[in-house]
Nucleic acid binder design. Sequence first.
DNA 1: GTTAAAACTAGGGTTTTCACCCATTTATAA
DNA 2: TTATAAATGGGTGAAAACCCTAGTTTTAAC
Lengths: 214, 214
Amino acid sequence: MIEILIADDHAMFADGLESILEGQEEITVKSKCHDGNGVIDYMADSKVDIILLDVNLPGMNGIEVCKEISTKYPDTKVIAISMFNEESIVTEILNNGAKGYILKNTGREELILAIKKVVAGESYFSKEVTETIMKSLMNQRKNSVKSNSILPKISRREKEVLKLIVEEFTTQEIADKLFISLKTVESHRSSLLAKLSARNTAGLVRIAMENNLI
Amino acid sequence: MIEILIADDHAMFADGLESILEGQEEITVKSKCHDGNGVIDYMADSKVDIILLDVNLPGMNGIEVCKEISTKYPDTKVIAISMFNEESIVTEILNNGAKGYILKNTGREELILAIKKVVAGESYFSKEVTETIMKSLMNQRKNSVKSNSILPKISRREKEVLKLIVEEFTTQEIADKLFISLKTVESHRSSLLAKLSARNTAGLVRIAMENNLI
DNA sequence: GTTAAAACTAGGGTTTTCACCCATTTATAA
DNA sequence: TTATAAATGGGTGAAAACCCTAGTTTTAAC
């Protein structure tokens, strides 16, 4: 039996969800909350398998609720529900532990499918949401490929040094690891600074990670 | 008119693609290649709008070809074609500039849709490929959420300082920007080192970027 | 097969960061 | 109310990073 908590401040919508789910014999709606704190309070006493969580909740918003639930109760999975298919919101709540994201115009069958998938340990997104994520993913790649192309070649030794710098080793430690002089490592650092047009270690690490040349 | 180059070492498959596409009056198959170098040579003389590129090509493999084409001829879009729906391959070729990825069991209509989408500047992926990407995306998030949870709270001022450190400003410059003393900034740096358990600036930047707290 | 460019090596001198030590004032939470 | 954390600032000294120069070796190009 899949136990569910519904969190939505629009009573009518929450009731609608409940009546849809009551038709399913393997699903029970344990309770309904109308704000973020209600969810936190409910979880302090009882547990459920799935929380259907409206992103725009009064008081404590959905993203904060999701973060707290995901860290405190990792066995409870959150499916975010929203009117909006905005990339920033989707990304934000997924980064905070939501296992699914469906839009409010989602049909009965899709909702039940989403719940079953998430219970099975998978994730589920509405078709439109998937498109949004993929679009933003491709934009990221476009940018990273662009910046990649202007990067000059980093030599084998320089790459070794860079890797160790990112791993927080000091110049002396790197010298010992590579069996070369402190001064040689400093030399490689200088070349790296010039090639990557960085001003200091911070820049080296940032550029190394942005272009993952580690 | 959309001009296409087909690159696949299985002649029969390449011919099949060609005959499918010949039925479309807005599409012309300009040529077919059977290895990676053939693609590079062809592009040196003529240009096309789309390359349907098999990932597993003899000689120069599809990923290298894709990288070279995407950087040299950004107007030519690459759609990767493969038998396999493996996350590592998909990620690799997308990172090297492919605009689409379809499986070899893709039907006629879907192939044509993919071509039209990519020509229009969008990207296209088979349903199965999309699922694979989303799955790996969620695994990444799962890991990053895990590591996030052990991070202590960074205060507002510390976050400001951290952001400027990542942007390659020196302590003195940060002090000037925030209208506070050099010593205060050093104080914040120390707190950051302790809280994020980093040894030096490199660690601060790495952790800041890994957990994107910028 | 010479030549030029890049890579790898390293020393001297300067600037920045870091590690301790400390203190005051102001929010925030228990 | 009483700690606890945040934000501010100071001094000293060591360690690390950075800048400039320069020799040898390897690689690439002509």
